[in-house]
Amino acid sequence: MKAIRIHEFGGPDVLELDDIDIPQPAEDEVLIKVYASSVNPVDQKIFEGKAQQKFPVSLPLTIGWDVSGVIEGAGNKVRNFSIGDEVYARPFPTINGAFAEYVVVKADEIALKPKSIDHLKAAAVPLAGLTAWQGLFKYGGLQRDQKVLIHGASGGVGSFAVQLAKWKGAFVIGTASAPNLDFVKQLGADEALDYKSERFEEHVQDVDLVFDLIGGDTQKRSLEVLKEGGRLITTVQPLYKDDAKEKNIRLEGFTAQSYAEDLEKIAELIDKGVVDPVVSSIINLEDAKQAEILNAKGNRGKIVIKVV
């Protein structure tokens, strides 16, 4: 099968299109024929070798953190899925990734694909959708009528977070670049702020939850807008725990996990028309290098890798 692999760490040029054997599922795994995957910022950290402490990998490695496809094989302990099922998932590419024609995934980490969208859109969902869902609700505890500030609201995770927070009944504020402010409002945000020309802490106050997808100075300044007892949940390193403690704010970082029940709930919301995955570009598997270069420049929603 064809797969995008790295044999050394470096820039996008280390991504190579290889011919390798089709993997075989273990007794608790399924073999998925990949129709589509998608690009995530963590891809770059992995192929540059900057994620070895958090996500240690051995080379060569097939990358890719999202998959939508069809089950073509299953281990003898798999009971809940059948050959031919259309599924989606977030494989863990420290072992194997989805920039390939086939991938094996543990059966308890997959869910049936949303019925109302095709594989290209479905592939945009797993990692970004899980991150938004778990950040807002499992870690952030967001409730109806609370106020949430989402940094990076136009990106892959942010575009899901805005829609999910609005579905929950929260008052949603998103930060983005000027060209994306209208887009963030279209996603459902009540307010959208240009992070380049406006200091959000001068416009926002009494926030219950900050969902930080940026980090650094943005994270530190976010402490100023939270009410006492508020939460700052980040997908990057939580750097200002002492400052947060002084203000009685809970600051916590997390990495999304592949929980099938979360994927099932997200699929249900997609099929109800509550959430719509945002796909900015569709790029063929053999051009994955160009997709990663494009993603590093920033874009709305997700870049999808078309395999079939």
Rank of each mutant, 00 (worst) to 15 (best):
A122F: 08
A123L: 11
T131H: 00
Q134M: 13
Q134D: 13
Q134K: 12
G135L: 05
F137R: 09
R144S: 15
R144T: 13
R144Q: 15
Q146I: 03
K147H: 10
L149M: 04
I150F: 08
G152E: 01
S154R: 05
A161S: 04
V162S: 04
Q163N: 10
Q163C: 11
K168L: 11
A170V: 11
A170M: 12
A170K: 12
F171P: 03
F171Q: 12
T175G: 11
T175Y: 10
T175D: 12
N180Y: 13
F183R: 09
F183L: 06
V184A: 10
K185P: 08
Q186G: 11
E191L: 15
A192D: 10
D194I: 03
Y195N: 04
K196F: 00
F200W: 10
F200P: 07
E201P: 06
H203Q: 09
V204H: 05
V204Q: 08
D206Q: 06
L209P: 14
F211M: 05
F211T: 00
F211Y: 13
F211N: 01
L213Y: 02
L213T: 03
I214V: 15
I214F: 02
G216V: 01
Q219A: 02
K220Q: 13
K220I: 03
L223Q: 09
L226N: 02
G230I: 01
I233P: 09
T234L: 00
L239W: 00
L239I: 00
D242W: 12
D243N: 14
A244S: 04
A244N: 05
E246G: 10
E246R: 14
